[in-house]
Nucleic acid binder design. Structure first.
Lengths: 182, 182
DNA sequence: CCTAGCTGTCGATAATTCTAAACATCCGGG
DNA sequence: CCCGGATGTTTAGAATTATCGACAGCTAGG
């Protein structure tokens, strides 16, 4: 659960071809500290870690995003998308089995009158989408609006939100959210 | 230059309606520490900040991407999407003006024979998309495949990649990438 | 073999972070 | 008016982090 700051720092430092002393010089800390941090014998203060990353250079966000590559499928046939919807709402998930995805990409279909649920949704992250076909009523915080083909939305997911198809024809959307909800 | 960890923490904590003591309880630290951190009188250790964010909850990466914006547009008419393409490739960006977005959502159109460029693209992050209409040839790393409507892709953007419309009809895609490229 | 220069690790100590408990406000109810 | 319960702040001292200097290992060159 806890982040292996030491291993991550060591890996990045070596990737940049820097010795502990060289990075220490650039960052304005001592080589000993870097040694201790990399061995996870101390948990550096945010200000120290910031200094270290400034010497690399790399942002805090990048550091904690931790982006490692792997050999996983790239292409997905329509039938390979994983269905996770219900009740007139079809949510078809791209790259469902991919470990440590950073996003959830969904091909969504709302039957007439279908909606995401009685309760407003509320979770952390951001989500956005484009309407392909039909109409969808999007409610976010207090605001509500009906979007048609080519129209789009983007909001913080911690605002209470809901989707509903107010029309008679099915509605099709492509949406994306981060961090992944599914 | 340095990050205002205190202000950021306070803002996020209040956004979640938590008191210092309540967050302290959830995070397993003392309320006093939270007070000190929020006043920037100490720079918390990474492990302490991690505990605090676990109590919110929020990831370190999210914390440092600084997502403190709220009063921004949610809905976008088709005409409000910002065109950033060229040469037969139309890339229409959702929420272009939004500060500190975590994703780039694009409504893309490729004219027949159009492609993303001579050079393969290569950048940090992940990207994914769903084909709405027409056909697109997606090349990622060594692999290449033609995708049609309803088919999808998801890959690490640091693998060299390219998109090309091999057909005679225009191709329409909705794609998303993180971190934002535009 | 020995030195010079690099590497990372370690121990003692200085500096900073973190805790625990007290303190100062503020607000609503009795 | 005062109390209970909430808030955030402060302080002394415990715990942890950061520094400085020493150390051992390795490699290249003389």
């Amino acid at each position: 659960m806890s982040i292996d700051v030491g291993a991550r720092l060591r890996s990045i430092r070596q990737m940049c071809g820097l010795s502990q002393r060289e990075l220490a010089r650039r960052a304005g800390v001592t080589n000993g500290l870097i040694s201790l941090v990399e061995m996870n014998r101390v948990s550096p203060s945010v200000s120290s870690l910031k200094k270290l990353l400034d010497g690399i250079p790399m942002s805090m966000a990048e550091f904690f995003t931790g982006d490692l590559n792997q050999q996983v499928p790239v292409f997905y046939a329509a039938t390979e998308l994983v269905e996770i919807g219900n009740d007139g709402v079809s949510l078809r998930l791209v790259a469902a089995q991919r470990a440590n995805r950073q996003m959830t990409l969904l091909h969504e279909r709302y039957a007439p009158d279908a909606q995401t649920g009685e309760e407003m949704l509320e979770h952390r992250g951001e989500e956005c989408g484009v309407v392909i076909r039909g109409k969808i009523e999007v409610t976010v915080g207090g605001a509500s609006r009906v979007l048609g083909p080519g129209e789009a939305y983007y909001f913080n997911s911690n605002l209470p939100h809901r989707f509903k198809n107010p029309g008679r024809e099915p509605c099709e959307i492509v949406s994306c959210s981060t961090p992944p909800s599914f």
